[in-house]
Design a protein around this nucleic acid. Structure first.
Length: 766
DNA sequence: TTCCCCACCCATTGG
DNA sequence: GGGTGGGGAA
């Protein structure tokens, strides 16, 4: 047990207030770096040590498993006891727990599968075929988005069918109905269902809800600004009895509206709980004054916002460095050179440096550069481990063993390795299963049972002899594996499955990537070893649930001597000594798909804000003149967010001109209409016109060097739009008339390597 | 039935 | 740049 003074040591007055308010609802509005995780951990410790609440009576919900793990360790460290029974989970994992335990009440078998995005797509494709609808006209993605929308509004399929306003919506409703039915026969749920069905369970079965209400005296929700309506409702239901609900959030960091997160939860909290105490934490213990000022300057441009002034006792620190590069390769190179400098000269720890970007695709150039320069990195996401084919296949076998009704898993591996069950045979099996309202493995197992031949004219009659034999062999295989799953440990079962199914041989026979793929499987096997124990089937279910619910950041390790490459979304909640944000360009950040509405644009700005406020000491923001995407390239304009940074906080570095200018922010000017056009139609950047081409580097006597971003033939001459560097902005010129000259070569790598001006302090070659 | 290749289509962010 | 689906050859 920790003494009361330990729990309060190093807490500010505000933080103490938040820790100590334990009776009734509490809303903590916590700016970036204001020590909210600390407050939550101390609050838990206070509840346990001072108020004598048993740890297992406290439920804390976080955004990722990693955050959950860290909070649990921190809180248990404070109260001095591991495995205290303290419940720290994500909403999804909490709901899965509830459904495993009590899902029977709503007709869910405890061995239910969790369908991921891929399984969902497959299912929707099947349904479209069944309904004779063209998947080109009705994109499965769009339909799934429609279904997800409905689920998040708690609208079931029968109600949705009455609300349709267009033919498309009607299709969505029809698919939704069938989708629900088929998830039912597959004993499966999707991600939305985890929340929704737990919610339904609580609403429809008061006794079940009461068990949980009685157990959890205190409910805490972190990252509350990114919870959705169902999550808030779940939290309210759980806390209804004791009313000890504490939520922590920052409206300026709400970045998941596209996943139905609803920022209104924060404002509604006070309506739902009029007596809620509100504590605002606005002192940052993380960033320098300069970084804070820069970030505040950007976020201040959001209109839909409650004003909040962050302050800090930290020093001013270095200015925010804004840099420009020719293209993504040069950008990557310059970033790495500066990272090397920070590590060598300023003794930064590589593990305390992160490169952040808007889209995953941007990691490629960074990775390539890291590999070229021999710099160790941790990539978050990327080719996600659990999405690799060999991993998904292995997991599909296990899923099918646990839940034989899991048609998505079956269809994945029924003919992997090839065992003579053709797509045609699979179609037949599926249609028989559908017409009987059973699972596909059910149909297959019947066909494998000689005694069932008479009554099973369906499959035995529909398949030719050879195919039927193959199907029976598969039935035998699965039957054996299912039998063994009762006695074998997870690891043993994985071994047996890989051996008997022939999957091991299949992978190892792959000459090119076999070794790597087998290593991946071994890694999966390794992670299964922690799920050893009595009742192996239960452990297997746990293991599979873990696999389904991991997030990419969960595997991020803090103590590796490697820099981190991460998307801005995933960086939420993390912090680093030095942060490099790359790709600060119109169309990328803000993203072109988010530039149509003010709400979307403001979310992009919050995303930018989240990135900036991850930094403790140093913040770098880069943009490139040109960037490749989908095989082609296009000219890019600096992000408007760069112009929003107060000039006093910025140091601009021009790579090409070997200059550093203090306070150069806001000097740029450009035509917003042209930005919109460019963002909307990046393909037109490829158009070739006359002697001047989009993306050509050019020089002009007065304006200096620039990049052609638009070229239109006009009466013998070419009207070009050029983005000039160093604050000259966009200019429209008649090419010949103005004496514009092309700069050759345009090959970026060669050009910048040969450029003597590159000997900037910034650019000492590694 | 399987395997390979090519054409085509797609691509923001993620539990 | 990459994944997938369809078609054709073995």
């Amino acid at each position: 047990m920790t003494s009361r003074t330990d729990i309060f040591s190093n807490l500010s007055a505000r933080q103490k207030e938040a820790v100590q308010h334990t009776g009734g609802p509490l809303l903590i509005v916590a700016g970036p770096g204001s020590g909210k995780t600390r407050v939550i951990a101390h609050r838990i410790a206070y509840l346990v040590s001072v108020e004598g609440i048993a740890p297992w009576r406290i439920l804390a919900v976080t955004f990722t498993n990693k955050a959950a793990r860290e909070l649990r360790e921190r809180a248990e460290g404070l109260v001095g006891g591991a495995n205290s029974g303290l419940q720290v989970r994500t909403f999804h994992s909490f709901c899965a727990l509830v459904l495993r335990r009590d899902g029977g009440r709503i007709g869910l078998d405890s061995a239910f599968s969790i369908y991921d995005a891929d399984d969902q797509q497959r299912l929707v494709r099947d349904i479209l075929e069944e309904l004779e609808l063209d998947p080109k006209q009705f994109a499965p993605r769009a339909i799934l988005a429609g279904i997800s929308d409905a689920k998040n509004k708690m609208i079931d399929d029968s109600r949705l069918s009455k609300l349709t306003k267009s033919y498309f919506e009607e299709v969505v409703a029809r698919v939704y109905a069938r989708y629900t039915e088929l998830l039912g026969t597959a004993n499966a749920v999707d991600f939305d269902d985890l929340l929704l069905r737990a919610h339904t369970l609580f609403e429809d079965h008061a006794d079940v809800l009461e068990t949980y209400q009685d157990r959890y005296r205190h409910v805490l929700v972190d990252e509350f600004q990114d919870t959705n309506a169902i999550q808030f409702s779940l939290a309210r239901l759980l806390a209804a009895k004791h009313r000890n609900i504490c939520v922590v959030g920052d409206p300026d960091q709400s970045i998941y509206s596209w996943r139905h997160a609803d920022i209104r939860n924060l404002t509604d909290f006070q309506t739902v709980y009029p007596d809620a105490k509100v504590v605002t934490l606005d002192q940052s213990y993380r960033s320098t004054q300069t970084i804070l000022e820069a970030a505040s300057g950007v976020i201040a441009n959001n209109d839909e916002r409650l004003k909040k002034d962050l302050w800090t006792d930290n020093g001013r620190g270095s200015p925010v460095t804004v840099g420009e590069a020719y293209d993504e390769d040069e950008e990557a190179r310059v970033v790495l050179q500066e990272i090397n400098r920070l590590v060598d000269e300023e003794k930064y720890d590589r593990s305390e440096i992160a490169v952040m970007y808007r889209t995953n695709a941007q990691s490629r150039a960074m990775e390539a550069a890291c590999n070229r320069h021999g710099i160790a990195y941790q990539l978050v996401g990327g080719t996600k481990f659990y999405e690799r084919k060999e991993i998904r296949d292995t997991v599909a076998y296990l899923r099918l063993i646990v839940n034989p009704a899991d048609d998505a898993a079956l269809q994945r591996i029924v003919n992997v390795p090839a065992r003579g069950i053709s797509p045609r045979s699979v179609d037949i099996i599926r249609s028989i299963a559908r017409s009987r309202g059973t699972s596909m493995l059910g149909v297959i197992l019947l066909a494998g049972d000689e005694r069932a031949d008479d009554e099973d004219q369906g499959l035995a009659g529909a398949l030719n002899k050879r195919a039927l034999k193959s199907v029976r062999a598969f039935a035998d295989l699965m039957e054996r594996l299912i039998e063994q799953s009762i006695v074998l440990s997870v690891v043993e079962l994985i071994d047996l499955t890989l051996e008997r199914s022939g999957y091991k041989r299949l992978v190892q026979e792959d000459k090119e990537r076999g070794e790597e793929r087998w290593d991946n499987i071994l890694e999966l096997r390794g992670s299964a070893s922690t799920f050893d124990g009595p009742e192996p089937r239960e452990r297997l279910i746990e293991f599979l649930e873990n696999v389904a619910l991991v997030s990419d950041v969960d595997s991020l390790e803090d103590d590796q001597d490697a820099i981190t490459l991460i998307t801005l979304h995933q960086a939420k909640g993390l912090e680093y000594d030095a942060v490099f944000m790359i790709g600060l360009e119109e169309g990328l950040l803000p993203h072109s798909r988010s530039m149509e509405s003010v709400a979307d644009l403001e979310e992009e700005r919050r995303l930018c804000y989240v990135g900036m406020t991850r930094a403790r000491n140093r913040l770098y923001m880069f943009h490139a003149f040109q960037r490749g995407f989908r095989g082609s390239r296009g000219a890019m304009l600096p992000s408007r967010f760069l112009d929003e940074i107060p000039p006093g906080c910025v140091e601009t570095v021009s790579i090409r001109r070997n200059t550093r200018r203090i306070g150069a922010g806001g000097a740029r000017s450009y035509d917003p209409e042209s930005i919109k056009r460019r963002a909307a139609a990046p393909a037109q950047a490829k158009a070739r016109t006359g002697a001047f081409r989009v993306a050509d580097r050019v020089t002009h006597d007065t304006f200096g060097e620039g990049i052609v971003i638009e070229a239109v033939e006009s009466g013998g001459d070419t009207e070009v739009t050029v983005a000039f560097g160093s604050g000259n902005g966009l200019k429209k010129l008649m090419a010949d008339f103005s004496g514009l000259k092309k700069v050759v070569p345009t090959d970026s790598t060669a050009a910048s390597r040969e450029d003597p001006e590159l000997g900037d302090a910034f650019l000492d070659a590694p």
